[in-house]
Design a protein around this nucleic acid. Structure first.
Lengths: 205, 205
DNA sequence: TGAAATGCTGACCGAACGGTCAGGATCAGG
DNA sequence: CCTGATCCTGACCGTTCGGTCAGCATTTCA
């Protein structure tokens, strides 16, 4: 039972669609949806503009495809939280994993940031649907831990928000972070230490 | 010695420039620089497009004027940190003030977010210049407090980043926050409690 | 090997956009 | 009331952009 949603793509289709999405990720994350042009995407992908539109019907479709394809990667670390694990370790692992995503996939982070800033025109139903359900499950786990006295009393929704905010900040506002720190700093390495300290202090009972 | 940088504006100039900046703030914060059009700005300001360009030479000039005019408001709470005050109170007051800015001026917050995401093309020299100096001063205050044992040992730069990240998140990602929380929540009121708790736990010695 | 399917492109289109300009309306103040 | 400065606009311009299309090239597979 392999995934047959997109009925078999040819070798060329597979390669070129991938190239386009890769180029589009660079373009969209650098300039936002309206700021990026199909020509930019085409050049980054090494294809002609009409050829890009041969594989994806419109600029919008490329954008939508990118966003939905990336959502899973973005949400995966939250799913990895194990209700049977040690509460503090689980949260700290989540923070660490999310920070690594920011470090290794800043373009993806910025893509989402643009989308949410814009008012999430493409993700609106997902935010209030799948994402909200996923968060609710995680909130339930956290609430149980707190009830059992294994985690300090904090509001679980906002705990999650704070993890998102703090980790994504280092990708989305990287320019600012680097400018303020000046040269000779490794923002992500420092953030790792700082955030572990922060959440440890806040969540230890 | 009144501020005479802009040699006296007429009554009409003053009113219309203000209208344009107000309309531009709405347009830019909703769609980003490239996403906003001069026509949109003109309509929001209740003026014709050529008239907008009569007061500001270009779209870019409007944007730049907005950004620099807003910077002071945005940085003011950090300047209000008093080295002679109680360390924890001072930090918590700063957090609270910054969160109020997010609540009351979300458009301004989003405007900056777009600018930084873009790579800060208009603010680059400010980020590494005035902002960095301002942060360095605040860092010095925080470091002194930490040295004196009046604040827990945390890296001051990243403390400031975390305040920015956590407070701005509620303005910039408001759509996501509301979607995940669902109806019947007051994100900012909850955030106030949560963040005070967070920073109190983290910073108390 | 040949023909059908797939892949690709140059040229082009219409709309949107930033910006200009000539000239008319309005206002300030002597 | 007159005049010069300020204010405002319709019409227009060149460019950019998303998207189309006719037709040629290449690949696939029987």
């Amino acid at each position: 039972m392999t995934d047959q949603n997109e009925p078999q793509l040819t070798r060329i289709q597979q390669k070129n669609r991938e190239r386009i999405l890769e180029g589009a990720l660079t373009a969209f994350s650098a300039n936002g949806f309206r700021g990026a042009t199909i020509d930019q995407i085409a050049e980054a992908a090494g294809l002609s503009k009409p050829n890009v539109l041969y594989y994806f019907g419109s600029k919008d479709e490329i954008h939508k495809t990118l966003l939905t394809a990336l959502l899973d990667m973005w949400l995966a670390p939250m799913l990895a939280i194990d209700p049977r694990g040690d509460p503090l370790d689980e949260v700290l692992d989540y923070v660490s994993a999310k920070l690594r995503l920011s470090r290794d996939f800043p373009r993806e982070s910025r893509l989402f940031a643009y989308e949410i800033l814009q008012g999430a025109p493409h993700l609106n139903e997902i935010l209030g649907g799948r994402l909200r359900m996923l968060v609710d499950e995680t909130v339930a786990i956290l609430a149980a831990w707190i009830d059992e006295g294994r985690l300090a009393q904090v509001e679980p929704h906002h705990l999650i928000f704070s993890i998102w905010a703090l980790t994504q900040h280092y990708a989305d506002f990287e320019v600012q972070v680097r400018a303020v720190l000046g040269p000779g700093h490794d923002p992500f390495a420092e953030a790792e230490l700082y955030l572990e300290n922060l959440f440890r202090r806040m969540l230890q009972v």
